[in-house]
Design a binder for these strands. Structure first.
Ligand SMILES: [Mn+2]
Ligand SMILES: [Mn+2]
Ligand SMILES: [Zn+2]
Ligand SMILES: [Zn+2]
Lengths: 143, 143
DNA sequence: GCGAAAATGATAATCGTTATCATATGGCCA
DNA sequence: TGGCCATATGATAACGATTATCATTTTCGC
């Protein structure tokens, strides 16, 4: 029978040791649909690592963002949210102002026009944030 | 000699009384180039109203945002910034990641494509936030 | 297994913003 | 021109997400 393959360290960074709690944090983000707050990640991670503290969740998320496994984004309410990154590419968010749900979208034309806009102003583009607010289909119907 | 015309209330809302401090807060925002934090507004407003407290600045800003004289936006650092609104229309921001300066821009094509993007996802668009991060011309040159 | 370095949990600290509350002020009306 | 009462104000406590601190535990190359 094949020997169980040792799982890779959830963070690749130099000097970072493997830890079961950081693994649990990554798993929680990956297993979810994304857009979890740190507190929500904490709640999920506790299912695998009951004693894990909120400080470790924050530290792990920062680490996982640093090595590109997780992406952070900060909606206008100021509470950071986390989602899987790495294999998944960049995307923008449509946020329902009624139910708070998130949809994901990329429009290549918008992306391209942003580069043009930056160039026009002499900016060397590094990144951007686009959030569209409105009513999702379900909430729009309810009204 | 013409009698001095009484200045209009800086807030039009029902039940809101005129106050010299709210006037000073509005003046501070209008006189500045915009993008001031509440603390910066406080510093400016104190030049006209030396005893004004930070709580009154926050209250005034909220009031002035409510009646459309001032616009608030919240960069990723979570610290709200304020600028003149009303006569000035919507615009997006280019933010220098080196010096923190802001540039303003509107691209009608991007605005239009955002509506299309929202429609594609069944969203009833209410608003959006677009921030472009990068190096401003000056900072790019320094490098 | 040893030991140095990294990770952890409990909790204090931070910091922008809001809530509280006693006092001051604005402005309608007599 | 007061009087009255709702609104505005300042000082300060409270809030909440996030970060810093520090004593203890865990990791992993040897
Ligand atoms: Mn997403
Ligand atoms: Mn602006
Ligand atoms: Zn919705
Ligand atoms: Zn710059």
């Amino acid at each position: 029978m094949a020997r169980k393959k040792p799982k890779a360290n959830s963070c690749d960074c130099q000097g970072v040791r493997r830890s079961r709690r950081r693994d649990a944090v990554l798993d929680a983000v990956l297993a979810s649909g994304g857009h979890l707050s740190a507190e929500e990640v904490h709640r999920e991670a506790k299912k695998k690592m009951p004693g894990i503290g909120i400080a470790t969740v924050y530290r792990s998320l920062k680490c996982l963002c640093g090595c590109g496994k997780v992406a952070e984004f900060i909606p206008p309410d100021g509470v950071a949210r986390y989602e899987a990154a790495g294999s998944r590419g960049h995307h923008d968010h449509l946020i329902c102002t009624a139910c708070g749900c998130f949809a994901e979208a990329v429009d290549p034309e918008i992306e391209r026009l942003q580069e043009r806009l930056a160039a026009r102003h002499g900016f060397k583009l590094e990144g951007h944030r686009l959030e569209i607010y409105g009513l999702c289909a379900r909430c729009a119907k309810k009204k």
